[in-house]
Design a protein around this nucleic acid. Structure first.
Length: 517
RNA sequence: GCUCCCGUAGUCUAGUCCGGUCAAGGAUUCGGGGCCUUCGACCCCGUAACGCGGGUUCGAAUCCCGCCGGGAGCACCA
């Protein structure tokens, strides 16, 4: 039901074509703070691109790239290309074959469907054509220095011997690179910039290099691979990209692309950046995550410790919440660290009104209530305290209950209120083991400590996966036996949880993933 | 160290380009109160910011200079 109404809202907004802002609160609060329009954007003609490297699943840190690009695609009715940046990588940064599908799946979940999917590994001939253009324009040379020498020279600002090599010779050496005349590491194609450039990193950057790594898609078909910047200098033009929206960690790449364009007389798209976004709780590394998934230490790409898009979905966090969360930072260039609570707050607003309440107790202990009113063997509870339209449910109640161990421990000898039901008095001290004998006192709703309870009859074992990868075990009310996969509940006084995707209805225990308080 | 970027409340952010309408708006957090039989929601109230120092100007969060602080980049990775 929740999903339905949200989907309906989303569909409606999408139909309107505007930025996705759905709640009235959003409309008044953020509308004026909407992201600025893209420079020189022509409605319907905007082409944007997403360029992930397939080494790990998309995570919360990548969400900004997703939603900012998606925002502008929608705003200007443009196209968004998914271009896998699979230019072999390196020994340390390997492409993981299954990640192509994982990432597409992540985009799906995130609600950012690409208009077209492309692979850099399919575009080598185009890159070679451009490399040739650069060489012919006298803008590059083949350098055969060992990597260390090259770097040392660059740092000092001195030229490698090949820097002055004539264009014809460069063309020959380049051909030799393509033909396999050099082993990996023996030669690179370098851009001739300015050895006096104040930024040492920019001095004669490498355009193309040799690699014999086995590429998951194209194997060893190509040996000469472009560096990321050069491949984009090529494709931002070839693919007709109108605006490059990327994190500011890639600003130097802008310079490199612009340099190549100027050399070749091309006019490229403008660049827009945003600062680094870190979620305080999510200390993650893409490549490290891969190891942990691979080794089985983590529960696949949806392990909550990964903070992957998939894991957020697993936790019942709506893509719309992620979208609002990331778009709320605008295009600010400051590097920021934000508490996950900000994301949770967005999600709460979205799901709270439609999420049914259920009772569950962690670390349950049985309590037997003497003098319990027999007519209260069952009771009826609202599915949502503020939304009568969500209906009510009938649950088994006393005289045998299950209470959270922590609640019991907090009130030995005291009178407590079983929420929505009756008052009971606990013994003191509590028995070390076995059922706790308690005594019914009254039904009136007095100001007593309120505790969550579960009727012992038909109670459902629950296993709750926390974001830190640990599990809490408990017992939930009988109605939970009918819980279906992916259903979201609020366990009262615990938090929002989502039933695991692969939960088989009726099978014990009921496995749920914790979302947030 | 070098290059670039950024400094608005606890945390984010709007405003800075085109100085006055900003004694600075919003979100979230926190504190207090109310309410509903949740540690959730909702309502009310509150704390709390223009990094520092100069300058320009009738007037500066906005322009200029200097300083300080933070971050990112500096690969034959992406």
């Amino acid at each position: 039901m929740a999903a339905l109404s949200l989907d309906a809202q989303r569909a409606e907004l999408e139909r309107l074509g505007g930025p996705i802002r759905s709640s009235p609160r959003e409309a008044k609060g953020r509308e004026e703070g909407a992201l600025p329009e893209l420079p020189d954007a022509i409605d319907g003609k905007v082409v944007l691109r997403l360029a992930p490297f397939p080494s790990g699943a998309l995570h919360i840190g990548n969400a900004r790239m997703l939603y900012v690009n998606d925002y502008y695609r929608r705003l200007h009715h443009g196209r968004l290309l998914l271009v896998f940046d699979d230019t072999v990588g390196s020994q340390e940064k390997r492409i993981a074959p299954e990640l192509f599908d994982v990432i597409r799946h992540d985009l799906d979940i995130a609600g950012v469907p690409p208009d077209e999917v492309l692979y850099k590994s399919d575009r080598l001939p185009t890159v070679y054509r451009w490399a040739r253009r650069v060489i012919d324009a006298g803008g590059a040379y083949v350098c055969t220095c060992p990597a260390e020498t090259l770097q040392a020279n660059r740092a000092k600002g001195t030229a490698c011997p090949e820097r002055s090599q004539p264009g014809g010779e460069t063309a020959d050496l380049w051909q030799k690179m393509l033909d396999g005349g050099f082993a990996p590491g023996e030669a690179v194609l370098r851009l001739r910039t300015d050895l006096a450039d104040p930024d040492p990193a920019f001095r004669d950057r490498v355009l193309c290099r040799l690699s014999d790594l086995d590429h998951p898609r194209v194997g060893r078909r190509w040996r000469v691979w472009p560096m990321l910047e050069f491949s984009w200098a090529v494709d931002d033009i070839e693919l007709g990209i109108t605006h490059v929206l990327r994190g500011k960690d890639l600003v130097m790449e802008d310079r490199m692309e612009a340099f190549v364009w100027k050399l070749l007389g091309e006019r490229g798209p403008p660049f827009l950046h945003w600062g680094l976004l870190r979620v305080a709780e999510a200390k993650i590394s893409k490549s490290k995550g891969y190891q942990q998934v691979r080794s089985g230490e983590y529960d696949g790409w949806a392990d909550p410790r990964l903070w992957s898009i998939d894991s957020l979905d697993r936790r019942g966090i709506e893509p719309e919440a992620l979208r609002r969360f990331t778009l709320g930072f605008g295009l600010s260039l400051a590097d920021i660290e934000v508490p996950a609570e900000t994301l949770y707050a967005e999600n709460r607003q979205l799901i709270d009104p439609t999420t049914p309440r259920r009772s569950a107790v962690i670390d349950a202990r049985e309590v037997e209530v003497a003098d319990y009113p027999p007519e209260l063997a069952r009771t009826e509870l609202p599915n949502h305290p503020d939304r009568p339209e969500l209906g009510r449910r009938s649950v088994p109640a006393g005289p045998r209950f299950l209470l959270a161990g922590s609640d019991l421990a907090a009130h030995p000898g005291g009178e407590i209120r079983l929420k929505d039901l009756v008052n009971i008095e606990l013994p003191s001290p509590l028995p070390v083991s076995g059922p706790v004998p308690a005594r019914f006192t009254s039904r009136e709703n007095r100001k007593l400590p309120r505790v969550q309870w579960v009727g012992a009859s038909g109670a459902v074992p629950v296993s709750l996966l926390d974001p830190d990868g640990t599990h809490r075990i408990g017992l939930g009310e009988a109605a939970l036996a009918e819980a279906t996969p992916r259903q979201v509940f609020q366990f009262e006084r615990i938090g929002f949880v989502r039933v695991e995707t692969d939960q088989v209805p009726g099978v014990s225990p009921l496995r749920v993933c914790f979302g947030h308080p």
